[in-house]
Design a protein around this nucleic acid. Structure first.
Lengths: 199, 199
DNA sequence: CCAATACCGGACATATTGTCCAAAATCTTA
DNA sequence: TAAGATTTTGGACAATATGTCCGGTATTGG
């Protein structure tokens, strides 16, 4: 692996490779993309590619680092808020929807086909971390549901991923704020919220 | 493609191939399995494989058909039962967990790794219908959340699939009744259930 | 300026895919 | 049961992908 991440040549190469992969993903199925495609598109030598990434997947996965950082930040600031309890929960949700809306093209490309498996898996991994944090922070006091906390983590993340992909499939018509609100309501209070007798 | 599905040789070969794939899936990652692996395991000629299936995927999908039929039948009989109203809410849940437990081997083989995407996709499709019915039946009166009912469907199914796979990954240790109860509680009341003052 | 380092580019061994064939084995049915 | 139909075999085949390696060249940081 090319060690120093500060060398201009290193940075240049990595950007070229990532951009090339994104370009290709928008054009064809993730599975159909070969290392050769990538280095041709990026104008980079084959050995250079392997000097930076072990495989196509490694390159692909690396692209999610920024997203992870973004979501972690939002989660942290949400947890730090002093508002009502609900506002502190699920701090990643809103940011995630907004990020997806701001990069609809690439997200939609990511979600479809085989690449979606890797992409969604990666997002799922990041979100699981955050939800785990959330639960640890907010459920710390009542040891009640702590027994199967991991089940809850999977439940929440699974639900979120489903809503996210549904939303993307629907071309992200609903405003992020709205989907976010719906998701939060469902997650925090369930699908049968106080069967209010309101007409 | 070998035409006649009644020829003993044909049937024998297909069974051999499907069994071989299942055996291999239990041993290694779906992605890592090659056609060669399969025909070696099945003791079948390479050309024979391609006489029956276009690809590894085709074989995988075909093998899943049986499970799908089985699942639908199970759901039918579950729906036909006469229970009180509460029991019919999310009625698929309990039956699904029990069915999964009764066929743990196959489920785990299908669900694990990336090969599971295809299988889970089918299950997801079936469940979506059931949940849609559920919501239509129980939320019919209050037109409130009807606007984005499909979002709720995806939410519930996504959450359920996540719990199911988590449960399977954990070797289905928890009794079906217990997972079912947890899932229902989360879905109907949310993860922050009325912060009951109970100690 | 110059030593360090990253890139090139192409060769290389290896592996996988999917197709093809003629001969042998097996099946169906008359 | 015999014969005609069908399937399996086993290996050869081209095409393509992967991952490693090297000497030579270009760029960089100090």
């Amino acid at each position: 692996m090319a060690a120093k991440a500060t060398d201009r040549r290193t940075l240049r190469t990595r950007v070229l490779l990532r951009d090339a992969l994104i370009t290709l993903i928008l054009k064809k199925d993730y599975d159909a993309i070969t290392v050769k495609d990538i280095i041709d598109q990026a104008n980079v030598g084959r050995s250079t590619f392997y000097a930076h990434y072990k495989s196509k997947e490694a390159l692909f996965r690396g692209g999610f680092e920024k997203l992870r950082t973004l979501l972690v930040e939002h989660q942290r600031s949400a947890l730090a808020e002093r508002g009502n309890a609900d506002a502190r929960r699920l701090g990643f949700s809103r940011a995630m929807f907004e990020h997806a809306r701001d990069h609809t093209e690439i997200y939609r490309a990511l979600v479809r086909g085989r690449g979606g498996i890797v992409a969604l898996g990666e997002i799922r991994r990041v979100l699981s971390e955050l939800v785990r944090e959330d639960l640890t922070a907010t459920l710390a006091r009542n040891g009640a549901g702590a027994a199967h906390r991991e089940l809850v983590v999977q439940y929440v993340v699974g639900a979120f991923m489903a809503v996210l992909t549904w939303w993307l499939d629907r071309r992200a018509r609903l405003p992020p704020a709205e989907v976010d609100a719906l998701f939060r309501a469902l997650t925090l209070r369930g699908i049968a919220p106080a069967d209010d007798d309101a007409p």
